[in-house]
Design a protein around this nucleic acid. Structure first.
Lengths: 350, 350
DNA sequence: CTGAAAGCGCTTACAG
DNA sequence: CTGAAAGCGCTTACAG
């Protein structure tokens, strides 16, 4: 049986296809198509024929081959801990929008707060030769990340970073925002403020805890371990109710809640509702929020993540790195690092 | 100035690096590393040396090269209309989880409901030679998609599809779910039920509209154009308030709302709150929900998207396609299509 | 038991 | 004005 003949529309067309069809060399086609026709002094008529043929055959360059050859892929990788988290997906969107104007594509990967997965994603992105990686890391250990840095791979962290690694990062003013929120709760009269937090191995979360403790200290309020609950991020849906149970059991006169992430706040609201607890009587604060928070808890005070700014800044730094690397690839210079802190917008609602 | 000598840790190590170091051929290294050592009868001692050296040098295969050569990338592409939409990010998560066990990586792209972007993403994924594409399309025209199908590129649609294209898809029972929800509102006593919907060029949304209209017809309720609002998805935040204004102006005794997406419902809740409208007096229904809906509108009835099932099914179909294509790449056979409808879970709360 | 060689689809000095 | 050729890092018939 003869193989069915197919039109160009369904055939793979490469530079070679065009070159053979027009009886010119692959190089000529490549040059014309990459806009170097004039520079290489290809005759106008040849250029026109190539262009027309490429269009007619609907030629699409094979990025794999191009990237393999040139070392550049015009693609950036993004690794976030959770794609279902509105903060991270918001940043992803902001990054995508920013890159869009710059002719870069974005590959998004979600580590699901799993260190092993994160490693795999880093390696995958590297093996696809993405030009740079943006990451909100999830792991304690940092072999893969250390490796990236050793290799001068363009990397920018956001939301999270490692203090002992000299890297670019964009974070928010974690401690200050937390401090301000908790101070606000205190000034509104709360004296037994619980903190619900997570991922204690991450600096970011520690900073938020620091803000809480410093605010209490400033007003000579005792730091009460019964009011401090650290929830495992991997199964917070199951763990948070127990933590709240304990708080209400041991400290029934708790009068305020500080949530270090919107995710925890959201879960707490569900708990409150399930237990018929009128949470409007508490002073509430949270780092970041869901868009529906004002409907559920009109009085909650929040530190709003500057999502678009984070996206813009992260891209800006990464592209700077990429270009720097490109320009002095032979010289082994010590690259400067950008470490940016963007303040949250504080919203006091009560 | 001499170029700084670097340790293996920060050098690019390829098969060639290893081969030269061990004085064997690249082919030998390749075979050993891909587990074909025994089959190719490479001596055990050589195998051991290769393995040890690869480990020592921390060799990582270059996926670009491998994919370029083999035509397989072990990567799947996903294109969703909006990464910030919890439904789509939920499906992305479900897909990622499913693929995880199967040694496939996932590249997520967000078209942001922009046809041009969507085309670019399709072409990018193709040029990276992903083994298959999962897509919830956003565009009216379908040149790129038609091309995918002409080329027998493994593709699965979800949430949305084109009736005139013979493709694999996974959708929910749009019409039935809508019908049931609206019927429920009617049985609860509502007679002037408004429908808020979007993207009229998408079949999916039309089906939901059909369900609404058929339910009204069954109970001899007049279809009132004043109660039908089609909101542009690109700027629903601005458009929805105006639409609701009109409804309340022209039909002040509206007594029910059917939202064809959770996004529209969410935006409506914001409107209701801003205008101090006690929406609990209405009969409410929505296709899909946000996790906080029960707190905001305890009485809202919803058709819950079977997100994990969608993810699983979509992957299952795609892998079937990929394997099919692999096995009979030479034969031009007409591939069967899988068109799956998964029912939503209906939740009646009032 | 192992190697030489072609090829995947590009880019880019080098040559004439 | 244009082509031949090497190379990016792999895989895989083919050969001995």
């Amino acid at each position: 049986m003869e193989k069915k003949k197919r039109s160009y529309k369904s055939m793979k067309v490469s530079l070679k296809t065009i070159a053979e069809y027009l009886n010119v060399s692959v190089a000529t086609v490549s040059w014309v198509l990459s806009g170097l026709g004039d520079e290489k002094k290809i005759s106008l008529s040849t250029q026109e024929r190539v262009l027309a043929c490429a269009k007619e055959m609907d030629y699409r360059p094979n990025m794999l081959a191009r990237a393999l050859n040139s070392g550049r892929s015009n693609t950036v990788g993004l690794i976030i801990p959770s794609i279902a988290d509105s903060f991270y997906s918001g940043v992803a969107k902001a990054i995508e929008r920013t890159l869009d104007n710059l002719k870069y594509s974005l590959m998004i990967c979600s580590s699901e707060s799993d260190g092993k997965r994160e490693e795999r994603m880093i390696n995958m992105l590297k093996s696809y030769q993405v030009d740079g990686i943006i990451i909100a890391p999830t792991k304690k250990t940092k072999d893969e990340i250390q490796k990236l840095i050793d290799e001068d791979y363009p990397v920018v962290f956001f939301d999270r970073f490692f203090s002992d690694l000299t890297t670019n990062y964009v974070i928010i003013n974690n401690e200050e925002s937390s401090f301000s929120l908790v101070e606000h709760l205190i000034l509104k009269g709360a004296r037994k403020i619980a903190i619900l937090t997570t991922n204690p191995h991450l600096l970011t979360l520690n900073f938020r805890m620091d803000g809480y403790i410093n605010a209490l200290k400033k007003y000579d309020i005792e730091v009460n371990d019964n009011l401090i609950k650290i929830i495992d991020i991997h199964n917070y849906e199951e763990k948070l109710p127990g933590a709240l149970d304990e708080i209400f059991e041991k400290e029934p006169d708790v009068d305020g809640f500080f949530f270090t992430t919107h995710i925890l706040a959201m879960e707490a609201f569900k708990y409150f509702m399930n237990h018929n607890i009128d949470y409007n009587k508490f002073e509430l604060a949270s780092i970041h929020e869901e868009s529906l928070f004002p409907l559920i808890a009109p009085q909650i005070n929040v530190a709003l993540m500057p999502i678009p700014d984070i996206g813009k800044k992260v891209v800006e730094i990464l592209l700077k790195q990429i270009n720097l690397k490109e320009s002095n690839s032979t010289i082994d210079t010590c690259q400067p690092v950008d470490q940016v802190t963007i303040p949250c917008k504080l919203i006091y609602r009560d």
